[in-house]
């Protein structure tokens, strides 16, 4: 049970990273080599949902495991755990954020684009919390392979974030640049 919880945790970390990267790619409006844009979006969605499945597999066994001593309250409310409460708390916060992002994603047609987009931005807070939790809380978090993997994931997300903030990020950036910046203060809020 304990080992299973650890492995599923690491798998969900990888999936969450993939989801963040695909999300940034989808936001750019660009296809991925031969994969069309709508497939990138579907991939982003499906990998996120798969990450949620692995998060359930990560958390549920810990609830059942007598050694881990995690109860239902610890899963939702951060920083109350008995074992490394700080690092576990980061994971709890990340889990709550994942729940918010996924639920608003599933119901985005009802919530409207503004709520969806605002909550979706929380993904950028969720990911570093989840990574810190993986490294700090894991029993083998400081082992060489895990640290190496964490560095790789970190570099990938940082590179994607830098690309996201660059001027040429959007597929249409070059053709739209001639339109200039907002000329009136009351434009798109």
């Amino acid at each position: 049970m304990w080992a299973f919880g650890r492995v599923s945790g690491l798998v969900s970390m990888v999936l969450l990273t993939a989801s963040v990267l695909l999300g940034i790619l989808a936001r750019s409006g660009r296809p991925l080599l031969v994969i069309p844009r709508f497939s990138v979006t579907l991939l982003h969605r499906n990998i996120s949902l798969l990450a949620v499945v692995f998060l359930v597999l990560h958390v549920a066994p810990l609830l059942l495991d007598s050694y881990a001593r995690v109860n239902v309250v610890d899963v939702v409310v951060p920083f109350l755990g008995s074992y490394k409460p700080f690092w576990q708390g980061l994971g709890t916060v990340a889990l709550d954020l994942v729940a918010a992002v996924v639920l608003t994603g599933v119901f985005r047609h009802r919530l409207g684009p503004r709520t969806f987009r605002t909550v979706h931005w929380l993904s950028y807070a969720m990911w570093p919390l989840a990574l810190a939790h993986s490294v700090g809380n894991g029993t083998d978090g400081t082992s060489a392979p895990v640290v190496a993997a964490a560095v790789v994931l970190c570099v990938a997300v940082l590179a994607a974030a830098a690309w996201r903030m660059s001027a040429g990020f959007l597929e249409t950036a070059a053709v739209r640049r001639s339109g200039g910046n907002a000329r009136k203060g009351w434009g798109r809020p």
Binding site: V175, R176, S178, R183, K184, G187, R188
Partner: peptide, 10 residues
Amino acid sequence: SARQCGPCMF
């Protein structure tokens, strides 16, 4: 232009 609609904005 209210800069809401792309074809008008650009």
